[in-house]
Design a protein around this nucleic acid. Structure first.
Lengths: 187, 187, 187, 187
DNA sequence: GATGAATGAGCATTCATTCAT
DNA sequence: CATGAATGAATGCTCATTCAT
């Protein structure tokens, strides 16, 4: 009572952050299954015990990581019309992911395809964002449906890039999709 | 030679099938990574050694299963026009894969996204088939490009199905894509 | 009764020989432990069952292999004097082994050092041969003792060749030993 | 830091020692290949996981043991003359190795013959030491050559001991070699 | 005699999790 | 709060040996 625990709490928080940071970089580079708790704590410079103070299990960690890397893509856009905004979002997203590297995208899609929580979160997040853009022009149901279709198309292109080990150029194909297929979805 | 090995061969074949069957049901239920060779042989009622008589490695098994499941899709079609043929192919493919089960598709896309050979083979195979359909209407370069776009779109829909753990209905969305986005590509 | 079993026996003998031959080449190339019964039967073109018709266990095989490779060194010599004969034997032996290759010698010495029967047989054989040469000049006990010393020296040089991965030239050093150390043993 | 870890460190060290001790006795009795990690941990009364805390691989263990046993040989000698020093070194070395046990020597020579690094290290170390003794009497090149010859001879005697499963007495034969063959090299 | 699928104990190694310090 | 040694079940895979055909 009356003791100043600020310092202690700060240190604890720091530990937790270091763990999340380490997990982030390792899992993105090698995939969830290929990273052990040992790897993470070693990279983070903390003990294995510390990991289990902050996270009940290894799976718990993943929840902490939802707002990661792929969610970081800036969606701010000054585009006025719906088409412009969607175009901007998709084009910038693809470019960012391409720049992040093929290996990382392969890891991400591989994990996402398996139905991992963070894959799903990201998908829903993307759909929600596109939906919000379409809301200006379509009613709720239609907006959602079209958003799912657009995001599916966008993910499909990145997946082809991953499957072909880089042979299918994603920025090229997203442009083609935007100029034609997606334009027709937007009506 | 000279010996009647019918019975032995039958038994051996039976063993192999029991393994494939066990693997199929287990992987469909739990996913590739979560199923061990031990699980499979226990379920199949054979020894661990038997597994390695029929399959060189655990990875070999899944290759066989994927060929089994994914290459079976019939592409024969009596459709006269390009649109009809493409429509038929995509619709039937999606339906077949959907019927095979979500877990299997998740396993497959997860492996494919990582750049595995068989993922790539299947992609190229699909692209080549669609390309051949488009060849009646477009020149080579255009046909290839459009085929990649169509297949990417089709894979994207299945991927969304996988990512959302079944929430995005693939037959619904492929129909929507065919009626609108893909139509405009073919247009 | 009365049936002609010659053909059958011939075939059986042939099988056995093929197994020994295969084992010989494989074990010399890779070492006993690194060669499985499967490897041997595959190389020999016979079934695994056939192996166990001819040999009770894998270890039994080794007995069949005693008169192998390293025993093949020709010892015939027209040299009249003891020194000449010993010189001839050691020099030719080392040369032959060197020509057979470092890898093979490493395998052999590695197995021999572990106290394997065929290592021992070869050692005793070599000692006996040198002893027989020395018998002309020394009494039994002395001949045996000197033979052991000479053979030890000769094996030591080859061992150094093996340990240093070929850096210690065995023909050079056996010559030096013969010109000096061994000469002094021979009195 | 700040915590008294003396007890923990003591226990850890004890565990490690128990593993080394168990490995030593088992390998001495049965040879490296015939002893599994399971055998060792069972004998040591620790878990299999504990083994891998202290040693990266099974091979690591033996390296530690070999360093322990073979590099311990005291080379300190008050002998004034070259012959005496060489005599002392070889005799003491052989005696120490003989006391350590045949099985251990067999393990060591078997590994060394295969060109393993630590076999080579020990050889070079021994040659360098003998060379340093000879440096008082011979020029560099001659000293090195003679050192290689002496060490080869010494190793050959130990090898004969290994090959014959203990029948060739190494202390006897090193004495004979020193009194005659090696003396003539030093001559 | 010959076959080769089947066996199952065995291998080295990994890893999420616990708990005495 | 933090530590990291300890646990032991689990992994993919190998292999000498057996036996129904």
């Amino acid at each position: 009572m009356g003791y100043d625990n600020t310092k202690r709490e700060q240190k604890s928080q720091e530990s937790r952050e270091r763990i999340v940071e380490a997990a982030k970089s390792l899992i993105l580079a090698r995939g969830y299954d290929a990273v052990s708790v040992s790897d993470i704590t070693k990279e983070a410079g903390v003990s294995k015990g510390a990991f289990y103070i902050h996270f009940k299990t290894k799976e718990d960690l993943i929840e902490e990581m939802i707002d990661l890397v792929f969610l970081d893509i800036k969606q701010a856009s000054s585009e006025k019309d719906v088409e412009g905004a969607v175009y901007h979002f998709l084009y910038e997203s693809v470019k960012t992911i391409e720049e992040t590297g093929l290996k990382m995208a392969q890891t991400w899609f591989s994990a996402a395809a398996n139905g991992s929580i963070y894959g799903r979160k990201k998908f829903e997040y993307d759909v929600a964002y596109v939906e919000s853009l379409l809301a200006r022009k379509f009613d709720n149901l239609e907006a959602h449906e079209k958003a799912v279709r657009i995001v599916s198309n966008y993910y499909g292109i990145l997946l082809s890039w991953c499957i072909t080990d880089g042979e299918v150029n994603p920025t090229d194909y997203i442009k083609k999709a935007l100029d034609n297929g997606i334009k027709s979805i937007l009506g």
